[in-house]
């Protein structure tokens, strides 16, 4: 029974990898947006702004990476709607595998996609002048994995309960942008008025951004232990909800 679980997870993860590498548009679009942010926003605004004693571009680099993780993860989760529309999911749902194995397989697939995206971004970052140490780069990739585990699960939860792609825009406006805006990616948390502060504290991405900033720049507001613990806890909750959501999915 356990062998069946791992076989199923492997089969699904392998499929996600293959599909990702064959849909080059997805990879390209996943990289262009954060690139634009760094170059245009960071470069343009950064010329006149300095935060915490460092160049603004440097300050937002971890946040922009976290943004690509967030967007990449949630979009990936939403793509499951296409799987359903194209009936690919039927083959998986009729197979003698548990729904949680389907969920885990898809989640690992998403995390792998994000891994590749972040790696490419780090390489591009080097070209723009951000040269992290080997430790920093590896740490950044690990943080990306942790955050994507959380966000892919969230994306899968939303995707499995949506019936059509028309809802994509709603998700963007009400989930993705708020998560990003209130995460400290673009500006330090202290700057916000106190009535918005609680949104930042409740936002799991805040801790992801903080952790990413620690990995790449060595600064942290909440402490590594707290960041990791919170991300793990939220991931566990999302994974549990996600497995349940998959179990309820009808063909």
């Amino acid at each position: 029974m356990l062998m069946g679980f791992f076989d199923a997870v492997y089969a699904l993860w392998l499929r996600e990898i293959k599909v990702f590498t064959r849909e080059r548009e997805r990879v390209i679009s996943a990289i262009v947006t954060p690139l634009l942010w760094i170059v245009v926003f960071g470069g343009g605004l950064g010329a006149s702004v300095e935060i915490s004693g460092m160049n603004y571009q440097q300050f937002i680099f971890p946040g922009v990476i976290a943004m690509s993780v967030l967007f990449g993860s949630i979009f990936y989760g939403l793509y499951i709607i296409w799987d359903r529309k194209l009936d690919f999911l039927k083959e998986v749902l009729v197979a003698p595998v548990s729904r949680s194995s389907v969920f885990v397989g898809k989640m690992l697939g998403g995390m792998s996609d994000v891994f590749v995206q972040v790696a490419i971004l780090l390489i591009i970052g080097i070209a723009l002048g951000f040269v992290p140490s080997v430790w920093a780069a590896s740490a950044a990739l690990c943080v990306a994995m942790l955050v994507s585990m959380c966000m892919v699960s969230l994306g899968l939860i939303i995707g499995s309960s949506m019936k059509s792609p028309e809802g994509f825009n709603l998700v963007m406006s009400f989930v993705m942008w708020p998560l990003f805006m209130f995460s400290g990616a673009l500006f330090p948390v202290e700057g916000l008025p106190s009535y918005l502060n609680f949104l930042v504290v409740l936002n799991p991405l805040t801790y992801g951004v903080d952790l990413m900033r620690y990995a790449l720049l060595g600064m942290t507001e909440f402490g590594v232990a707290a960041d990791v613990a919170i991300l793990l806890a939220v991931s566990a909750v999302f994974m549990a909800i996600g497995s349940r959501s998959f179990e309820k999915m009808q063909v």
Partner: peptide, 13 residues
Amino acid sequence: GVVFQQPSVDDLL
């Protein structure tokens, strides 16, 4: 084994 009405094979594989 099930063969559905709409094709459910993966196009990209």
